[in-house]
Design a protein around this nucleic acid. Structure first.
Length: 575
DNA sequence: GCCGTTTTCGGCCCGACTGTTTTCAGTCG
């Protein structure tokens, strides 16, 4: 049995192999398209198979439907087993190097017998790659840079990936009768955008039994350590997970300790010392009397209270001023998911989304929201099927009709317009003015100098039709650094010209970086949590944006889309 | 491999950029 995402991953692998083998590029694309359709699927796959409706999905014909059914029902695919044997395993990692695509992989493999990154790195150092036809000195050094980048990020995982897996494991542990309570700890609990492992703390009087369950989980690839109170496993995705078992009494201290950050803990322990107390991972002691006296705490809340401060949410435990603020009882009331009332910046099938506006709207409604903003790509983004002015008019008609039809939900007409290399905004004033709102983002020419890029982006911010600055740096976590940009200058401009700064909640972006958010708040810039959803399930990504907003100390008042549709309309029209 | 009011064959998105070349191939979004 395989779920839709696992099946999609197999189809992608097949596509990659076909590409390397130089198969018909349209056949290759058919596999990619089918994978994408599956990932964006909202209907239940089993039901679709049963009612024989699979071939009604876009991009899925007889052949791919058969493949999908075979994978879904048996977890295997004969054709895949055959084709996977025809290429060496290591080529997939070579394909991940930026600038190296299927054609280059094939040449490296055929001409130099290179089948792994390690091989490739050696060959580059020996200068053998530069001599290949179609390659050269620059390609060779770019490959080395790419490998260095991959190695720098290796052992790191996107928050969303790690969190998914961690929640699955946590649920299984919590079900164990001997587990009294359990929680995720570490950087994952602090909602860091990338994490290197999963930390879990469990309270139990029978650690041995709980540890046994942990090391025998079906997700385990390898047991690295298996002790009485601490075990480490390597999960199949390559992520390590640590479990620490403590008694129920010790649990609050252990949870706090293993949540960190290290810097936060050091600062807090030194503060405890000042107050004649001692803190470690198992308890809090009162040192005022002649003998050490245990200070009982039933949860983290009490620990902070005993230390004379208000509760510090895990997201902001980075020793960036939270301890001082908590002592003065001046921590902001951080935004929560329930504060968000609608989602702007969503894509539809009008550009590169996988769902119609109606389905996206229904998805937003199902999440309990009051409004959705459709912001498809603009004309210049041809690769993403960007809207032409003519198609914009048609899209408006569809939205108008849906607004009449759908009760209790308002659809805003937006556009994600490209910031052109010279800072002009795609589509021109007249078209831009016809939208309820305009999101602007950079999607091209990433290699400008910081000064050039800053000038370009600020010019777009000054455009009077612009309301929101999308994914400020264009970063893709663990894949691509953001482009060079004077972030403070850009934040200043957003604050001055009343442009809201997007917290792009796509787990691969989480852009603007939370470290810059306090500066934006200081400058009184408006922020907005946008899922940048390309599918119905992508709408739920807004929650990652909430976590990032919390890491940036933001309250509901700091975020535009905690307001009602009416208030949003007013805000958009104030320009 | 998919698709079809130009329909069962023949097209399928396309332009920018880079580095390799001397007119283009590969990669990317």
């Amino acid at each position: 049995m395989m779920n839709k995402n696992e099946i999609a991953a197999v189809l992608v692998e097949i596509a990659e192999i076909l590409e390397i083998k130089g198969e018909n590029p349209f056949k290759v694309r058919a596999y990619y398209n089918a994978a994408r359709t599956l990932e964006g699927l909202t209907e239940d796959l089993s039901a679709l198979i049963q009612s024989k409706q699979l071939t009604e999905l876009p991009g899925i014909g007889k052949n791919l439907a058969d493949h999908i059914i075979e994978l879904h029902q048996t977890g295997k695919l004969k054709e895949y087993d055959k084709i996977i044997k025809s290429v060496p395993e290591g080529i997939f990692e070579i394909l991940k190097i930026p600038g190296v695509g299927p054609k280059k992989v094939r040449v490296l493999w055929e001409k130099l017998g290179i089948t792994s990154i390690l091989h490739l790195e050696q060959a580059c150092h020996q200068g053998r790659v530069a001599h290949l036809e179609g390659f050269g000195e620059k390609t060779q050094s770019k490959i080395l840079e790419g490998i260095a980048q991959i190695e720098k990020h290796s052992g790191q995982f996107l928050y969303a990936v790690a969190d998914d897996l961690a929640q699955t494991i946590l649920k299984k542990l919590e079900k164990h009768p001997k587990v009294e309570r359990a929680s995720i700890a570490g950087s994952l609990r602090r909602c860091k955008e990338v994490v290197k492992d999963i930390d879990i703390v469990a309270a139990t009087e029978d650690p041995k039994k709980v540890m046994d369950l942990f090391v025998k989980l079906p997700e385990v690839e390898k047991v690295i350590a298996h002790g009485e109170t601490k075990s480490t496993i390597l999960l199949k995705l390559g992520i390590q997970a640590d479990l620490r078992c403590v008694s129920d009494k010790e649990f609050p201290y252990a949870l706090h300790h293993f949540t960190g950050s290290k810097e936060h803990n050091v600062a807090l322990r030194s503060l405890a010392q000042d107050k004649k107390m001692k803190m470690n991972e198992y308890c809090l002691f009162d040192l005022k009397g002649k003998t050490e006296k245990l200070i009982p705490c039933k949860d983290e809340n009490e620990i902070f209270a005993k230390l004379g401060m208000e509760y510090i949410p895990p997201e902001i435990r980075e020793n960036m001023g939270e301890i001082e603020a908590a002592q003065k009882h001046k921590l902001p009331k951080l935004i929560e998911s329930k504060d968000v009332r609608g989602l702007l910046h969503c894509h539809s099938t009008w550009s590169d989304g996988t769902a119609s506006i109606e389905r996206m709207a229904e998805g937003v409604k199902a999440l309990g929201f009051e409004y959705i903003g459709v912001a498809d790509h603009s004309a210049v983004a041809k690769y993403a099927n960007g809207l032409t002015p003519e198609r914009v008019k048609e899209q408006f008609k569809e939205i108008d009709a849906l607004n009449k039809k759908l009760k209790g939900l308002h659809i805003f007409k937006g556009i994600e317009a490209d910031i052109l290399p010279d800072g002009e905004v795609d589509m021109g004033e007249k078209v831009l003015n016809s939208f309820d709102y305009v999101v602007v983002s950079v999607h091209s020419k990433f290699n400008l100098t910081s000064a050039e890029m800053t000038k370009r982006v600020i010019k777009a911010i000054k455009n009077k039709y612009v309301h929101i600055l999308g994914h400020m740096t264009g970063r893709l976590l663990l894949r691509r650094e953001g482009f060079a940009l004077d972030i403070k200058a850009v934040i200043d401009a957003c604050a001055d010209y009343g442009v809201a700064i997007e917290i792009n909640a796509n787990p691969l972006r989480l852009d603007i970086d939370w470290r810059h958010i306090p500066y934006a708040k200081e400058k009184k810039a408006m922020l907005i949590i946008n899922p940048d959803a390309h599918s119905v399930s992508g709408l739920e990504d807004y929650e990652y944006g909430v976590s990032i907003a919390r890491k940036g100390w933001l309250t509901a008042d700091d975020i535009l889309n905690t307001r009602s549709a009416l208030e949003i309309m007013k805000w958009l029209k104030r320009k």
